[in-house]
Design a protein around this nucleic acid. Structure first.
Lengths: 302, 302
DNA sequence: CCTCTCCATACTCTTTAGGTATGCTTCAAC
DNA sequence: GTTGAAGCATACCTAAAGAGTATGGAGAGG
């Protein structure tokens, strides 16, 4: 049996007349007669009663008509869904994130992506940098977001955004009276660092800046992520260098101050990683969204 | 697209290797390669990633695999169901009945039929003789049960059973003391007749018998069916001639007495009617059940 | 570097769908 | 009653498409 047989059968059943059905199908009458005979022979069942007036469905034919319509609808649906999946408009995208990336850029990106691709199910997985790399390799996630990424052969790193650094400090802190702070002034003030875990990380960025400015930081506490860091600032444990997006966190008593030095020293990048050679149309669509985001972000700067 | 494409696609997706899939499908490798290419081209979507190790499904391919399996299962199911319908094992049978036929024969027939054909939905319609004939012509019912049927060109009449006649009378009735009654003894006893409505009917049978035995019956009441007739016997309205199967009705105070005369005079037939030329396999199966029933009934008599 | 594996391509053959012409049956109209 | 029209079936031919054989080409492993 063939989908052609079903198409022909439905036409004949609807027209109740082989000649008219043949016209509708843009073929001549004899081949259609033969196809219907073949179908009946293959099923071993009479689907039609031949009357002088035309073709009339048997009970078995009535039943088969329903089934044939179902099958044809399902085929059409399968075709359409598969095509949408091939265009990255249907399916699932697993994304690896880490603590502070969720604060600003990722929500905006996801919002844009879901507007264009409402039928792609986005699943977020919180994981460390090392876990993300491993998960990308094993295809458990298609894309991961992180900072301070070192080049790898099998993984592409694509910069998503750059953010300036701010100092988070308590309103009672001596430096809080200044509207702008020079980096060197941070010397001798206890500092909260994050994240713990795999190096190189944001910690190394901060340590490097301190050394460039001629001092070793006084480490008050090492914590897992920016959220915890700012929470400790609110509790008076010290100051904390954070990316701009951390201003989303408005803990009581915490204020953010800009540093005087200009880029490129006082910026930190946010990048995404994905498997080199990954052909997934959903990933491609997501990376397109990332590009669009970067463009619109740089336009805002202009 | 063709069902062949689906079969081939599923095989390749499962084997993850065109060569092995070709072996499984009992064809050679190159045609299979081409069929898969055709399918991908028609959908406009890459279903597989070609690796040095073999064929790996894309996300779109995974989705299409599910759909393809569904479609194939549905086709198989449609084939099987249609074949069962063609053998009269699946579908619907509409049967016309009248009041007293339901008492004995029909329940037994239906029980037998449903044992052999559990997936045929049997729908009973209570209708008069005239309604049954009209409904058979209009195909609203496939078969009807009735008594005293006159031959018709377009309808086949098939005798289902013959039943002897009994006299239903009240236990206090003078004739109740006799274990057997001669027909002529019914003279001068008020008699309940049924059914009202279309002639010829059971009434004409009874009237004919009375005249044969030399008297005009004293009509106490005409009622619609045997059930009402026997109910009136219980209320003391008179005696009532009924088919044997009416003994199913055990009203308090009602007893049944055999008549002395032998067949063929004191029997009444139950027949079924159906459209001449009706090819429905379900009807054929039902008529076969009727034949089997008649055979087993006559065996019991032997 | 060679070989093995596996998919793609080229070409041929065979099957089968589709077209044209025609026959057969039934129904209706004259 | 005969004739014509409608509708399905059959016979035969053509063309398209699937399947087979032979071979090429690319990547992985020894």
């Amino acid at each position: 049996m063939d989908l052609r047989h079903l198409r022909y059968f439905v036409a004949v059943a609807e027209e109740e007349n082989i000649g008219r059905a043949a016209t509708r199908l843009h073929i001549s009458q004899p081949p259609l007669t033969r196809q219907i005979q073949q179908l009946e022979e293959e099923l071993g069942v009479a689907l039609f009663i031949r009357t002088p007036r035309g073709m009339e469905l048997t009970q078995a034919g009535e039943l088969f008509l329903e089934e044939a319509r179902n099958i044809r609808a399902l085929v059409e649906q399968a075709t359409e869904r598969t095509q949408r999946a091939g265009q990255g408009k249907l399916g699932r995208l697993d994304i690896g994130i880490f603590g502070s990336a969720i604060l600003d850029v990722i929500p905006k990106l996801l919002l844009n992506f879901r507007n264009c691709h409402p039928d792609v199910k986005v699943v977020l997985h919180t994981m460390t940098k090392a876990e993300q790399i491993e998960a990308v390799r094993q295809r458990r996630i298609s894309v991961g977001f992180n900072r301070m990424l070192a080049p790898l052969d099998d993984i592409v790193i694509k910069q998503v955004a750059t953010e300036g650094l701010l100092v988070a400090l308590h309103a009672d802190h001596p430096l809080a009276r200044q509207s702008v702070i020079r980096f060197a002034e941070l010397k001798d003030h206890p500092m909260i660092l994050f994240p713990t875990g795999a190096r190189p990380s944001f910690i190394d960025k901060v340590m490097g800046l301190c050394i460039e400015n001629g001092f070793q930081p006084q480490i008050s506490q090492e914590v897992g992520d920016a959220v915890t860091g700012v929470a400790l600032v609110a509790s008076g444990f010290g100051i904390c260098l954070v990316p701009e997006s951390a201003t989303t966190l408005q803990f009581p008593g915490v204020i953010y101050r800009r540093l005087t030095d200009p880029p490129p020293n006082l910026i930190v990048d946010l990048s995404c990683i994905y498997r080199r050679g990954d052909q997934s149309p959903i990933l491609a669509a997501f990376l397109q969204t990332v590009d669009d985001y970067r463009e619109s972000a740089s336009e805002q700067v202009d």
